[in-house]
């Protein structure tokens, strides 16, 4: 597996210990056909570096920019995304799911 959960949570700890501002994003709920299962993690630092995934690429950009706000404010946020991918529909996948992502600061 590419960058399993193990590496991500360890990276979150290591990044924080190295003095970086760090946020952890977690898929907490999914509806319909979601690309990544509940519990999937993305770790983000204050420079916008990230590791892991919450959607297989569809919404990571938005999660990263929200995460940088969370690192600044210290307040956790829950984000919701509808995942609709035209290409996916064309090949017969019903990737029209919705995911809810919880973003929290590591402090």
């Amino acid at each position: 597996m590419l960058a399993g959960t193990d590496d991500i949570l360890k990276a979150a700890e290591d990044w924080r210990k190295a003095g970086r501002g760090v946020a952890l994003a977690t898929v907490v709920q999914t509806w319909g056909s979601a690309p990544r299962p509940v519990g999937s993690n993305l770790v983000i630092d204050d420079q916008g570096n990230f590791l892991g995934s919450v959607s297989g690429g569809c919404v990571e950009g938005a999660v990263v920019s929200e995460a940088i706000d969370v690192i600044e404010s210290g307040k956790p946020k829950t984000l919701e995304f509808g995942v609709a991918d035209e290409t996916a529909w064309k090949v017969g996948l019903s990737c029209g799911g919705t995911i809810r992502v919880y973003v929290e600061k590591i402090d």
């Binding site: 949570l9 700890e13 924080r16 402090d107």
Partner: peptide, 14 residues
């Protein structure tokens, strides 16, 4: 997440 919780979680997993 508090860093102490994250650390404890990683320790249990290891």
């Amino acid at each position: 997440m508090n860093i102490e919780i994250l650390k404890a979680l990683n320790e249990e997993r290891a």
